[in-house]
């Protein structure tokens, strides 16, 4: 059996089960932000934590083979541009910057509250991708002491 990067087999098996659940929980928190506690900020941080979980368990190379840094920065830019375009849409359709121009829908249902859901999605992409990019940048920076010890500390 070849030497693999990352933690032991037990951690990897458990990670495979839990990461998808954490991801789902983050999306749930984000999508129900206008009805229950939560929203884009909390959901984005939870998503970033799920990817960080993946990086810590499987090692940097194996995890980043699937999600490259270009993808991360693309997601963050998409989030920023999406949020700004919602603000511009208010200006375009009703003449006021940041106006809630979509129909409000029926209260207390999932598809209500006009632009707030889309704003939540934009904030979610931005916060999640941004914090994960920060973590990846800090994790790739290796302390000089660790190199001599063989990179024991992740």
């Amino acid at each position: 059996m070849r030497q693999e990067s990352g933690m032991t087999l037990i951690v990897k098996r458990i990670t495979r089960i839990t990461v998808s659940l954490i991801f789902l929980f983050g999306v749930y928190i984000m999508l129900h932000g206008h009805l229950t506690p939560g929203g884009g900020f909390a959901g984005g941080v939870i998503i970033a934590l799920s990817f960080i979980h993946l990086v810590l368990a499987f090692g940097k190379k194996a995890a980043l083979k699937r999600i490259s840094e270009t993808t991360i920065s693309a997601f963050e830019s998409i989030g920023g541009v999406f949020f700004w375009s919602i603000a511009l849409g208010g200006l375009l359709f009703s003449g006021v910057y940041f106006l809630n121009f979509l129909p409000k829908g029926e209260a207390f249902s999932l598809f209500s509250a006009g632009t707030i859901v889309f704003c939540n999605i934009a904030i979610f992409l931005k916060v999640g991708a941004g914090l994960f990019a920060i973590f990846v940048a800090l994790a790739f920076l290796r302390m000089p002491d660790e190199k001599e010890e063989g990179g024991k500390a992740a």
């Binding site: 900020f41 916060v127 920060i134």
Partner: peptide
Amino acid sequence: TSIVIGLGVMA
């Protein structure tokens, strides 16, 4: 908003 900004500043 301030909580998330604090995290960015700390990073």
